[in-house]
Computed example of a mutant assay.
Amino acid sequence: MTDAGHSWLTDTRRGDVERQFEAEYLTPVRLSWLRTAERAEEPRGAYEAVRYGALRGRLPACCVPAARRRRLRSC
């Protein structure tokens, strides 16, 4: 496959350039994104543990009385 911008490269040399580009640029960028994603999980986990825990605790307190009221009305 010949790329118009790199037509002067042989297939072997083009492969070498692609591997070198991946090693020098793509691999570090991927690792950086993975570290960023891992760091993002830490505050998300803390937020979910605190905030969603509180919401889950309040949910039954809201729903159970409403369900009881509906049951009493249907009798």
Rank of each mutant, 00 (worst) to 15 (best):
V50A: 14
L72M: 13
A23P: 05
S7I: 00
V17F: 12
T27C: 05
T2W: 04
E22T: 13
V17L: 14
D3V: 01
Y25C: 02
R14A: 04
L55T: 07
E38L: 15
S7H: 04
W33C: 10
A66W: 09
R68Y: 08
A61C: 06
D16V: 05
V50N: 01
A67W: 12
C62G: 01
L55H: 07
R35H: 12
R30T: 06
S7K: 10
R35C: 06
A46R: 15
V50R: 14
S7W: 05
W33R: 08
G5S: 12
T10V: 01
V64W: 05
P28C: 04
H6T: 07
R14K: 13
R13I: 00
L34S: 07
P43H: 01
D11L: 04
E42S: 12
L26V: 12
G57Y: 08
L34H: 10
A49D: 13
A49F: 05
R51L: 11
Y47D: 05
W8S: 07
G57V: 00
A61H: 05
Y52R: 13
E48H: 09
A49T: 15
R73K: 11
V17W: 04
C63P: 03
V17C: 06
R68G: 02
V17Q: 01
R13M: 04
G45V: 03
D3G: 06
A54Q: 10
V50M: 07
L59K: 07
R73W: 10
A66Y: 03
R58G: 11
T27G: 04
P28Y: 01
A37F: 10
L59C: 09
G45A: 00
R44N: 11
T12V: 13
E22V: 01
C63F: 12
R56K: 15
W33V: 14
G53M: 04
L31C: 01
G5L: 11
A54W: 09
E41G: 14
R56Q: 09
S74C: 14
R35A: 15
P60I: 09
Y47P: 02
T36D: 09
R39K: 15
Q20R: 08
Q20V: 03
A66P: 04
L9E: 00
V50H: 04
G45S: 12
Y52P: 00
V64R: 12
V29H: 07
H6K: 07
E48Y: 06
S74H: 13
G53V: 01
L59V: 12
E42K: 14
A61K: 14
A4F: 06
R51Y: 12
R30F: 09
T12K: 09
T12I: 06
R35G: 00
A37T: 13
G15F: 05
Y47I: 08
C75M: 12
G53D: 00
E42L: 14
V17D: 05
